[in-house]
Nucleic acid binder design. Sequence first.
DNA 1: TATGAATGAGAATTCATTCAT
DNA 2: TATGAATGAATTCTCATTCAT
Lengths: 216, 216, 216, 216
Amino acid sequence: MPRDIVPVVEERQRDADRSQGIILAAARDEFAEHGLGGARMDRIAERAGLNKRLIYYYFEDKDRLFQAVLEQAYLQIREEERTLNLLGLKPAEALRRLIEFTWNYYLGHPEFLSLLNSENLQSARHLQDSERAREMNSPLIATLGEILERGRKEGSFRGGVDPLQLYVSIAGLSYFYLSNHHTLSAIFGRDLMTVRAKNERLNHMCDVILGYVLLN
Amino acid sequence: MPRDIVPVVEERQRDADRSQGIILAAARDEFAEHGLGGARMDRIAERAGLNKRLIYYYFEDKDRLFQAVLEQAYLQIREEERTLNLLGLKPAEALRRLIEFTWNYYLGHPEFLSLLNSENLQSARHLQDSERAREMNSPLIATLGEILERGRKEGSFRGGVDPLQLYVSIAGLSYFYLSNHHTLSAIFGRDLMTVRAKNERLNHMCDVILGYVLLN
Amino acid sequence: MPRDIVPVVEERQRDADRSQGIILAAARDEFAEHGLGGARMDRIAERAGLNKRLIYYYFEDKDRLFQAVLEQAYLQIREEERTLNLLGLKPAEALRRLIEFTWNYYLGHPEFLSLLNSENLQSARHLQDSERAREMNSPLIATLGEILERGRKEGSFRGGVDPLQLYVSIAGLSYFYLSNHHTLSAIFGRDLMTVRAKNERLNHMCDVILGYVLLN
Amino acid sequence: MPRDIVPVVEERQRDADRSQGIILAAARDEFAEHGLGGARMDRIAERAGLNKRLIYYYFEDKDRLFQAVLEQAYLQIREEERTLNLLGLKPAEALRRLIEFTWNYYLGHPEFLSLLNSENLQSARHLQDSERAREMNSPLIATLGEILERGRKEGSFRGGVDPLQLYVSIAGLSYFYLSNHHTLSAIFGRDLMTVRAKNERLNHMCDVILGYVLLN
DNA sequence: TATGAATGAGAATTCATTCAT
DNA sequence: TATGAATGAATTCTCATTCAT
């Protein structure tokens, strides 16, 4: 029988991991759709097709579940960022690529924006408690600093640009447009999410950032 | 004088407009602090120093109260914006002033950012029904369009700039930094809200926008 | 001036009476539609087009208002009954007329049935307190007794019929059908309120009562 | 035996069917006593000795709870009716037995009358949605039709009697007397619920129905 | 690991009623 | 007579969470 025990244990472990993953995905969707306060543990269980009690078994409570979701969301974007290989490009190209990536990632992951929105509404208290917060620190700032330095050295970029400020600007230009498109559309009476509008936005953002960074 | 004192006190006690105003202010603070879902009608009443029932008397329910708060928030920022007298300034000055105003307004009214955040988490469903929202907000884009046109005519601004895109960018640069400073600080381990950091941000934003718009 | 005072006072009195009448009618409709528990003082005021406070001014509270409505309803049916002049008819005709009257009155005054329903759900506690209830004790029972007696004497009616029992039966045959037509229609899947169905019911009831009372 | 005791107790504690049954009974009593509007969910929970939340867990809301209570009430009376075995009796005996049963059932189950009253005050909106209601109730009319047909064939009953009309009359004669005895007693100043009065009523009703149906 | 049953503390909302004029 | 403003006590319903197996 010992031959059986190992596989069985492994299988159980696999089930457990699988269940946790399913719960996390369900929770992410629920939190994204309804915010932290509006999310319902019942619905998360239903979405996951698993018993509500199991969520508590794995994640203790709602806040810790939200924290886990957040951490996973950051982990994911950082992982994709790592594949960008910006240092292999010319400075201007690298910036353009970063802008495009940011825009497309936000566009493809509206739940990420929503989760950040929720977390900021909570003064980031889940991230503050998170021991993994440091891991989520983007290496992008360092990379961006290097890009800026190269551009400046080759004479095409202006000097004195704080990479953090620039990163916040690049992110902010996409973020605000996408995260707030509901209110913006409502108050300006213009649909910001048509294919055309989105193309225009991307062009505009590249123009703004490069118009600022490039000399002449 | 005693004849006067009594009526005044009584008026205070039973002044519909005043009560509504107090409720709106209390609700604004509560919604800003806790979001729509996290806000408590009980606490709003307590903050207002008025009976909870009165909130329902004047505003029907929580959603309509939130809507009223939102509308008032937009009303206020647009009202202040109108006093800027942007059309009386030179184009570049006007832009700089708008950026500064936006930054300072968001800085001084974090509740406004929070309310917008909440509303976007709700897909702007409270604004969709509001006809007043559109009416209030559209003039700003018109003004910005005129500024851009003037700048282009006098040869200092680049052409082909969509005023809506530019406005979204101006707002977004401030908004993301301020609305998300909690997560940003947590992630980057840098306090973005020191006096110095804030000054740097304002300078950076002006550089970005004007660097983009100005020719040369 | 004394010439003026009297008319003014009268006018006021007329207004007061009028307001009370309007309130009673509004309350009757509201109670009939929603029952005592489901009726809303707010809606009664709205229906009446008068201030809610006025209802309390005239009727003290909800229960006493309901009591007043009930008393008026009884008053009305008894008043109409008095115009029937049953004693001027032959016994069988008199019975038939009473059945018809009862049926038509209930049919034309569904609110009366509804009010009785509500009051019985309350164990008639409003009537118990009402001093006018006894006054409204129908002279019908006496009249009905006389009709039965005459019929018996002329040899057409069976003897030993308790007029109260008979009255309750006459009323019950109409009452149950009309008061419960909603549930009856739902459980038997047949619309009891078509013109045809109503005609059949009236015929049936006459057949039942006369079939019972008449000899041969 | 100790091995048995523990499971039994625990089963008692967490038996879904049992809990639902207890809630239904408690709700039936509360609704009967206070009507739909006057019933209190808190009191139902208290009567049931169960947590209020559990009521919502099993029955969604007050209306659906009321619907369930109604359906069960109909189920019960029709179930008992079925045990009467009317088709095994001679037609006249069958009618008499049905009258007696109806009378005694209403007498023994005042909550049934009260529930019907409440439902009719609500225009039967809870039954309209219930498909079970029709299924449960229709067989009775069929049975009554067969009794009438047999009586007619053997020459003792008159022809042309609509079984639905007759059923409504049988029910109505008992229903009105019992459901409205509060108002009737108040109005006529005679206690209708003494043993003697009740006996008289039963005799009277049999006389009325059989006097109508029987030839001669 | 997984689950259905159960709960206490609140949540929004309602309602009859009173206040102040 | 008439009214709009204001209230306290419920009332239905919700929700995260725990129990017991």
